[in-house]
Every structure is written in structure tokens, then in C-alpha cells.
Amino acid sequence: MTAVRLSGAVVLMGGFPALAGADLEVVPGEVVLVRGPNGAGKSTLLHLCAGLLRLSEGQGDVLGCDLGADRAAVRRRVGLLGHDTALYGELSAAENLQVWARASRVAEADVTGALDRLGLPQRLRDVPTARLSAGQRRRVALAAIVVRRPELWLLDEPHAGLDSDGRAIVDSLVTAAAAAGAAVVLASHETGPAGGLATRTVTMAGGTLSERAQS
């Protein structure tokens, strides 16, 4: 089973093709870097793969679920790190992760273990996330993905806002997830540090994808 299969995928946003006929295949255990300039359609691609956007044209399935008819099933099984953190600012890191875990019906969610893995200091775990720095909130957002144990990781600019320790933690998370059989799609406007993680790089421009050299 492929984790992601897109064929001629088009996503129109207000009549504008944010994704203009994208073809992509990602298999479990693979780490794919989607590289492209700002506005190339990388975030749209990730949101489509997460089941958050509708296909306007073309075909696609994620984790065996059709992106046209079964997006709800897709959403349960993916973890998405976007430009925003999807955290409730008045709740603490631990409370946010508990909400994510309980809403996602994760049995025996290891909230403490996830925050440990992301290196969030103990003293910050009961502080409302609105009071944390951008980098700390990003770590909590990643911990929310760890708690849910998704089969497909979709990480948009995963190193953005993180210090060197944080970037190293992201790298180890991605490596561990892929080793455990999850598929990972990273999006970045530069090859940079994310490029070192990727088993394959595709470039994106004007809403279309093209294959690049194998690494």
C-alpha cells in the first residue's frame, strides 16, 4: 500500500489553481522533501494529503482512503504540523496534548513521554501555551503529533523557529517515525537541514511537482 498517491491533483482556491496537476507517490518508511519557493503550493499539498482540502480535479488516496469520498478517515491517521500550531493558547502543553489524545481516541497516550522527547522543560508544561515562545509552542505542536502516532507525518517547514537542539530533535523524530514504518512528507522552501533527512526530494513550482535526484 502506498501512503500517498496523487494523480493530476488540482486544488482550486477562489478559482486560482493552488495545486495544478500534481503527481506524487510516497511509500511507508520513506521521507520525501517537497522543496519549492514561497507560494509554490507546498502547504496546499500537505493540507490536501491531510484530508483538509477537497480535490477539484484529479485523483488521490492517502493510506488507502480516497481523498474524494473518505477524507474523514484520512484525517484520523495523519499528523500535520502547519505554519500555525493548532494549540489552545489558554491551555497548558500537557492539557493540549491530553485534548489531542482524548479527541483522537489514543489508548494509553504518553503525554509526559512526548513532552520529554521534545525536550520541553518540566516548569513550562503547566503554563498556558500562549505564554510560551514560538519555538516552545512548535515543540508542543510536534509533541501532539508524537502522542497521536500517525501513519503519515506532514511537516511544513519543520525546522522553522527551532533552535539547534530543537532541529536535532525533529530530525530524530522523523528518522524514528520512518524507521517505524510511517511515511513522512516534509515541505521547505530550501533544501537546508531538512534535505539531510530526506530519502527523496521533489521540487514544486507553480502548483506542480517534479522529481529530483535521489539522495
Binding site: 483538509l52 474523514a72 489531542w100 481516541r105
Partner: peptide, 17 residues
Amino acid sequence: AVESADGARRVLLLSGM
């Protein structure tokens, strides 16, 4: 506003609830 701030509605959308 609670759901629209910082993309928090993704909790409701991605959880499968």
C-alpha cells in the same frame, strides 16, 4: 474565536471526532 486562533480547529478536524 477559540477554534480560529492559531489553527486550533485542526484538533476537531484531524481527531476524527
